[in-house]
Design a binder for these strands. Structure first.
Length: 211
DNA sequence: GGGCGGATTACCT
DNA sequence: GGTAATCCGCCCA
């Protein structure tokens, strides 16, 4: 498997005003990491949009700027990685203009290349659907850590690409986001995008409800 | 300087 | 369905 047919997404893909459109279009795209010469790739099947200062579920709600959230205000195509529950490192992609803190959480992906490397990183023995299902597992399998927060996705060893595949519209479902009950009414917004019937999508209960 | 809780996961009953 | 694991970020003092 070579990456020569992959077209790296450019600044223009990320630098657009509608974070929901970008989150939807990221379905089917491929995350590529080649840290320490170890190539791992996986096709995105689940995303969540976080719509900046007006979104109560977002870390940047109300324009909050801290050492951690500062990354969200950077240029489109920057990686925002943060620690959740003291254990899991969650990978987001910053979108829109500088100072507009939109971000998209990558919640699920389907392994393509480098499964043995992913198995070692996750300390799993078998490559079942849990390998890259759920945001914590996606980062772990692809080797994405807190050290990558603030880094550009336009670089050579960490980016998102297209191989021309696009899910048909009927296979894309929008649902409420997972684990954001604290956000009041905003927890009900359909800002989560999933590929229908894909086993690498988390939260199947919600998926079934929406069906 | 201290206390609390989370954009989760895996393993338990 | 319940909960332990595990720790940084955030807020308040």
């Amino acid at each position: 498997m070579h990456t020569t047919a992959y077209q790296k997404l450019t600044s223009g893909f990320y630098d657009r005003p509608d974070v929901l459109t970008i989150a939807r279009e990221l379905l089917g795209k491929i995350i590529v990491t080649s840290f320490d010469g170890e190539l791992t790739t996986a096709r995105i099947v689940e995303t969540e949009a976080y719509a900046g200062v007006t979104d109560r579920a977002s870390h940047s709600y109300g324009g909050r700027r801290t050492a951690r959230t500062e990354i969200m205000y950077r240029e489109a195509g920057t990686a925002y990685v943060y620690l959740c529950y003291g254990i899991h490192q969650l990978f987001n992609i910053v979108t829109n203009k500088i100072d507009i803190p939109h971000a998209i959480l990558i919640r699920g992906a389907e392994p393509i290349t480098g499964v043995p490397v992913m198995l070692r990183r996750t300390r799993k023995k078998i490559a079942d659907f849990t390998l890259t299902r759920g945001p914590g597992n996606v980062s772990k399998a692809l080797g994405i850590t807190l050290a990558h927060t603030g880094e550009s996705l336009l670089r050579e060893d960490f980016y998102v690409a297209s191989d021309g595949f696009v899910p048909v519209p009927e296979d894309i479902i929008a649902t409420p986001r997972i684990g954001v009950d604290y956000a009041g009414d905003d927890a009900l917004l359909p800002y989560r995008f999933i590929v229908r019937n894909n086993k690498y999508v988390s939260g199947n209960t919600v998926q079934n409800k929406v069906r």
